[in-house]
Design a protein around this nucleic acid. Sequence first.
DNA 1: CCGGATTTGTTCGTATGTATA
DNA 2: ATATACATACGAACAAATCCG
Lengths: 255, 255
Amino acid sequence: MVEIAPIPRSPRGAMLRQREVAERIKQYILHNHLGPGDALPTEAELCEAVGASRSSVREAIKTLTALDIVEVRHGHGTYVGRLSLAALVESLAFRGLLSRADDFRVLSELVEVRQTIEQGMAASIVTASDEALHGELLDLAEQMAECAARGESFIEQDREFHLLLMEPLGNELLTQLTAAFWDVHAIVAPSLDTTPESVRETVEAHRAIARAVMARDVAAFVRAVEAHYAPVRDNLREGLQSGGSGPVPAGPGDF
Amino acid sequence: MVEIAPIPRSPRGAMLRQREVAERIKQYILHNHLGPGDALPTEAELCEAVGASRSSVREAIKTLTALDIVEVRHGHGTYVGRLSLAALVESLAFRGLLSRADDFRVLSELVEVRQTIEQGMAASIVTASDEALHGELLDLAEQMAECAARGESFIEQDREFHLLLMEPLGNELLTQLTAAFWDVHAIVAPSLDTTPESVRETVEAHRAIARAVMARDVAAFVRAVEAHYAPVRDNLREGLQSGGSGPVPAGPGDF
DNA sequence: CCGGATTTGTTCGTATGTATA
DNA sequence: ATATACATACGAACAAATCCG
């Protein structure tokens, strides 16, 4: 039997194939100064460039896709990803869903982090806000009140409200973290704060926050944020008996 | 030609194969109340269970591995992952490396977030800390001073110090976020704060923080944290000229 | 609107490396 | 040392999506 020398696979032992491929794709992006949306070589070209099979390249791309470092469009090509915090959302959301069966620890900790960030930014938010923002905040708070009066949900307004608070700070990362934490909360506890009292308190809390920003009253802002998250915490504690926010979003079946 | 009916691929339109597989693996973990370290079915079993090929299953597993939802041990099996924030670290670190070429915006924003969290937790940290913690903080600060005197690095002590601050709060998520942000900082700017003045200021800042905690002086704690991150910010601003912390960690070659 | 070219998605078969008993 | 179970890797073929002439 003739040995064909199937390419000295891993000259230096250790590094897994796909890990190496993923690393080189990242290097490629960095060295060529590519940004989100820029095109990457095709799978075939990547295979030839790194000397790996298409399967390995694809698995490496899968890893980078999960981190939103690359983005793949079927039948079109591979591109540099948006570099969002989608991975954080999915990872944290799963943790929350797992712990939800027993307690709401993860969700409870998440609420504490959200509150800490908003209160910690109180002074900056209040001083950096302008009239336009004040109008938007108040408008959203009123929309939420109207939705509540009609018995409708106002999750979109709620999300937008908390994002708007961070906007004047000009800190992209902070805004994205706020969005990510909000999304995780919404995934893990989609319908936890829906008791009539909670809804009323929540609406009023947002109004109070908006007023505090407009008055540029830091202390009032901190108190309003505290009042906003207090009922959420209470619901989390009591959520243990009521079984939380329904069963796990049933999948196609869990073999 | 007889149609073999290769399984009604996607009965309902849209969902990609691997996406569906990944979703069902997550459902499997949730429905069976598995925790980190628990064993998952083998690849072959997963293939049969979800009716997909090995390649698809493997790519789905790759995605979940990147999020640390599953963990694969070569030649051993597939297990539920540690659910760490590793994905956040890798994702954010890459963003930082990308933006580093132009400016240090991401890193600068990261510093602001770190400072906000630590200052926001000032009151809780100060009140929740105990004598044992005080001793450890002071000890670490002294170790850092000694290292600096010998011209050595003290990154390990620095990391441990900031983690210890969050420990008394009992918020697992907060501790992991602190660790993640610290790691990102270390990856993106591995040797940025190494000017003699910076080192001196940094050591003194940690000592001041430790003293503030011991004295349970919230205001002093906030000031000390401010003093800790101020030089870091300055270095970031000046880092633009000096070209930052060296070139991108060179890979095996970037085709 | 259609057809061909390009590119990614999926599958199968096979071979190899690794860990456990 | 052998055998078994398992993950890793490769390559070829076909399906599906997208684009363009």
